[in-house]
Amino acid sequence: MPIPPLHEPYPSPLKRSLDISLSGLGLLLSAPLWVFITILIKLEDGGPVFYGRERVGKGGLLFRSWKFRSMIPDSDERFGPLQARDGDARVTRVGRILRATAMDELPQLWNIFIGDMSFVGPRALLPEEIEVRANGKLIPLEKIPGYEARHRVRPGLTGVAQIYAPRDISRRHKFKFDLLYIGKQTFWLDIRLILLSFWISLRGKWESRQHKF
């Protein structure tokens, strides 16, 4: 898929205003959930509540992204920075609920509020993340076509790839969804993707990845 031109059909201050308004409201309304989720995580294994890692942002700049921890403690050190899979043994019981409803990503509202992320955009990736091919070959993500182009916009909490791309397809194909967004982004597309994301969260269907484009 050819790299599309960067498309900015509506002023970036409008997109930023949408991000600040929605993330600020989300932080306020979700505060009771933060307390409840913290208790559940601590009761399950006593490990850290939050999971923070450096991610690649707009222009290739690194920032620290935060989530509620959904995997066993020290999973990266023990298994490496691999993409989650269906039935992943690293995911805790509480984590499965958090991931299905996307509540593990509530702390990223703060990343959106301060400008590291946007509500809509490509998923923020780990700088050292790798992909494991079917033949067992390890591929650094920066070697996959489309990796650089997706950093021309802020990474997003949700997006075309997050909603429509099946979890287990290769990054090469997921990046095509990201490039589609970069070439087509509009204010109303952002609104549609945000509303779809809320609907999927309410249904607890994020892990099924059966949404149709």
Score class of each variant (00 low, 15 high):
1 M>R: 11
7 H>V: 13
8 E>S: 13
10 Y>H: 12
16 R>V: 10
16 R>Y: 00
17 S>Y: 08
20 I>L: 14
24 G>S: 00
25 L>G: 03
27 L>S: 01
28 L>R: 05
37 I>W: 01
39 I>T: 13
41 I>W: 04
44 E>D: 08
44 E>M: 08
45 D>N: 14
48 P>G: 10
49 V>D: 02
49 V>F: 03
50 F>C: 07
55 R>I: 12
59 G>Q: 05
59 G>D: 01
63 F>H: 06
63 F>S: 02
70 S>R: 01
76 D>R: 01
77 E>N: 12
78 R>D: 01
78 R>K: 15
82 L>K: 12
83 Q>Y: 11
85 R>D: 04
85 R>H: 11
85 R>A: 13
90 R>M: 09
95 G>R: 06
96 R>G: 10
101 T>N: 00
101 T>E: 04
105 E>L: 05
105 E>N: 04
105 E>S: 10
111 N>H: 09
111 N>L: 05
113 F>Y: 14
114 I>Q: 02
115 G>T: 11
124 A>Y: 06
128 E>G: 05
128 E>Q: 15
128 E>F: 14
129 E>D: 02
129 E>F: 07
130 I>F: 03
130 I>M: 06
132 V>G: 04
132 V>A: 05
132 V>S: 04
133 R>V: 06
134 A>Q: 14
136 G>C: 07
136 G>V: 11
139 I>V: 15
140 P>D: 03
141 L>M: 07
143 K>C: 12
146 G>A: 04
146 G>D: 00
147 Y>Q: 05
147 Y>H: 15
151 H>T: 09
155 P>F: 10
158 T>C: 11
163 I>L: 08
169 I>A: 03
170 S>F: 10
172 R>H: 10
172 R>W: 07
176 K>I: 12
177 F>S: 02
180 L>H: 11
180 L>C: 00
181 Y>C: 04
183 G>S: 03
193 L>T: 08
195 L>V: 13
197 S>T: 15
201 S>G: 10
204 G>C: 10
204 G>F: 10
205 K>R: 15
205 K>W: 14
205 K>V: 08
206 W>H: 11
207 E>F: 04
208 S>L: 13
210 Q>D: 13
211 H>L: 12
